[in-house]
Design a protein around this nucleic acid. Structure first.
Length: 142
DNA sequence: GCCAACGTTGGC
DNA sequence: GCCAACGTTGGC
């Protein structure tokens, strides 16, 4: 099973929206590197839901699962349609937000794509990085 | 709102 | 194929 991190601006589509919908279509990706990651996702993979562009609230809020593999993005209407979506469902919310500032401050996370290639909206996360971020989010403090 | 770090487009 | 100009993302 692989791990991922997927960004969305909460004002556009946030964790709360995914909770309400139960199953979300991750559409609107318009970057080839991000799209290739979408296409590499398999059912059962897990992804961190990251709120981007959210001021102090920027960071990882929850865990979701890939429940449907890549399909054409119908929000793109040109031919050929080169963009893809996946289906995701919430697994659980972390006990608290893991902010970008904390991730930056954690030496074991300094190789994360989130820090190395900040603008990529769909990223791969190593199992080790996953474990660390989730542990941070499940601790009440620190 | 600014701007760095990209990615994309198009002239040549 | 190169690269300048432009557009976008997203942190601050």
């Amino acid at each position: 099973m692989a791990y991922w991190l997927m960004k969305s601006e909460p004002e556009v589509y946030g964790w709360e929206d995914l909770l309400r919908e139960k199953t979300g279509i991750w559409d609107g990706v318009r970057n080839y590197a991000a799209r290739n990651n979408l296409r590499a996702m398999k059912k059962g993979d897990e992804a961190l839901f990251y709120h981007s562009n959210a001021g102090k609230m920027t960071g990882v809020v929850g865990i979701m699962r890939v429940v449907g593999e890549a399909e054409p993005d119908v929000t793109f209407t040109e031919v050929p349609n080169v963009w893809s979506v996946v289906k995701v469902a919430p697994v659980r919310q972390l006990k608290r937000l893991v902010t970008l500032a904390e991730i930056k401050a954690e030496p074991r996370l300094k190789e994360m794509e989130l820090l190395r290639y900040g603008r990529l909206s769909v990223q791969k996360v190593l199992a080790e990085e996953w474990r660390i971020v989730v542990a941070m989010g499940d601790k009440k403090t620190g």
